[in-house]
């Protein structure tokens, strides 16, 4: 996405636009919108769509090894949903006048971001539990907010996605519960996995509010309704009770309950790690993009054949 130039917006229209959002109005594709609103939406929605699609890979890694037929079907259905969600959000982005093909190309060229969480490897079956529970759990907190986003097509895609994702977190927690109540080896697998995924899950909400350059504007325009830290806190509060219920612990010696606010306060997040992975030095950054590039390149002949055949059929051959 090229950085949007500072466009001088018509102040009257801008004021009308902001008043409409302040009144909880919904913006639709053909409505007037500031260029910057459009570009922020394209950036955010395409990153979200890319995240869904790249997010198929770490979990897809275990479809062929799922330990029971039931788990295999659940996981396959879940990873398929991620693909569907990517598709819904790309569709929403296309209403802003960009082509999905170009957005995908930006991802493949390494010019677009996606959620860093997917640059961590899935090493054990318990990771499928941890991802469903924590990563989808964190995503749901975020997406529940986005279902009220000011841009209609984004909000509508989110409503559908939230409805479908209800089962994602539950199946993950069910896996972790089963492991935590299973054999000693399974219990150890569950705890080890929680240890690896806990901090990256907290990082999914992005930098602290003070370090989040886009946040104010996104909030004013109703694209985001809550700040990164507010959402992160909500996730921690929800999750700690769930951790305790299955007898696991989070890898945070500083975790403490704040009686005054009713919040669980975590220790410091390792933002160096966060930025390192964002900037490309996570263990799987290269692998994930290579996998997407390979699928795209190996599928080119298929996509071209479909176009060629349709053209011939339309011509009456």
């Amino acid at each position: 996405m090229p950085p949007s130039p500072a466009v001088a917006e018509d102040p009257v229209r801008l004021a009308e636009f902001e008043a409409r959002i302040a009144a909880d109005g919904s913006i639709e594709p053909k409505d007037w919108m500031p260029a910057r609103y459009r570009s922020q939406l394209v950036r955010m929605m395409s990153q979200h769509a890319h995240s869904e699609v790249v997010g198929m890979l770490p979990e897809g890694n275990w479809i062929t090894r799922a330990p029971s037929l039931r788990r295999k079907m659940i996981l396959l259905a879940k990873v398929q949903d991620e693909g569907g969600h990517g598709l819904y959000i790309y569709c929403g982005t296309e209403t802003l006048g960009v082509d999905r093909h170009d957005l995908v190309q930006q991802l493949l060229d390494g010019k677009a971001k996606y959620s860093s969480i997917f640059n961590y490897p899935t090493l054990t079956w318990a990771d499928i539990g941890a991802i469903g529970w924590l990563v989808d759990g964190a995503a749901i907190v975020n997406q529940t907010m986005l279902a009220k986003a000011s841009y209609g097509p984004y909000a509508r895609a989110m409503v559908r996605i939230c409805k479908e994702e209800n089962f994602h977190k539950r199946q993950g927690y069910e896996i972790m519960t089963t492991l935590a109540r299973g054999t000693p080896a399974q219990q150890a697998m569950a705890q080890e996995s929680l240890n690896r995924w806990w901090w990256p899950s907290l990082m999914m909400f992005g930098p602290h509010d003070a370090d989040s350059p886009n946040s104010d504007e996104l909030k004013r325009w109703g694209i985001k309704r809550k700040s990164n830290d507010e959402l992160r806190q909500r996730f921690v509060n929800l999750t700690i009770a769930q951790v305790k219920a299955i007898g696991l612990t989070v890898p945070d010696p500083d975790l403490a309950y704040d009686e005054a606010t009713g919040d669980w306060k975590t220790g410091p997040i390792d933002w160096d790690e966060f930025w390192r992975v964002v900037k490309g030095d996570g263990l799987c950054n290269k692998e994930r993009l290579d996998a997407r590039r390979a699928a795209h390149a190996e599928g080119a002949w298929v996509r071209e054949a479909a176009v060629a055949h349709a053209a011939r059929r339309a011509a009456g051959d």
Partner: peptide, 23 residues
């Protein structure tokens, strides 16, 4: 419900079925 990419009507119908009628 949303949209899909497809090369012709039958193709679009199948992609729509697979994408929007899974549940």
């Amino acid at each position: 419900a949303g949209s899909v990419h497809a090369v012709d009507a039958e193709h679009a119908l199948q992609n729509a079925r697979d994408t929007y009628a899974r549940r």
